[in-house]
């Protein structure tokens, strides 16, 4: 449990929590932008996006790719705990 671990580990955990919250907020903002565009700005979402697709498709597919990229980024930034190696 976190409370029993050395302070370096607690600092690592706190940093990880902060990172997680920030990335969640970042994704939530991009997701909210997608919902708002779909609901309130249909003419914009129908405009051309990338690769011959409209913005609605580009943004939607982009959200899926962004989720995978952020997940990998988070794992990379988490790295290995400083005082404990929980598992290989």
């Amino acid at each position: 449990m976190a409370e029993d671990r050395p302070s370096a580990f607690e600092a690592y955990e706190r940093r990880k929590v902060r990172l997680g919250v920030r990335l969640t907020l970042l994704y939530a903002a991009v997701y909210a932008g997608f919902v708002v565009l779909n609901v309130f700005f249909p003419p914009i979402i129908q405009k051309s996006g990338l690769f011959g697709l409209n913005l609605a498709l580009t943004y939607g597919l982009g959200l899926i790719i962004l989720a995978v990229v952020l997940a990998l980024l988070y794992n990379w930034l988490c790295g290995v705990p400083p005082t404990e190696r929980e598992e290989g």
């Binding site: 919250v21 959200l63 989720a67 997940a71």
Partner: peptide, 15 residues
């Protein structure tokens, strides 16, 4: 629906 079903996993992972 796909977008919504996937986006929720971000909350699951990060927090």
């Amino acid at each position: 629906y796909s977008i919504g079903f996937l986006a929720g996993w971000i909350v699951a992972l990060f927090v």
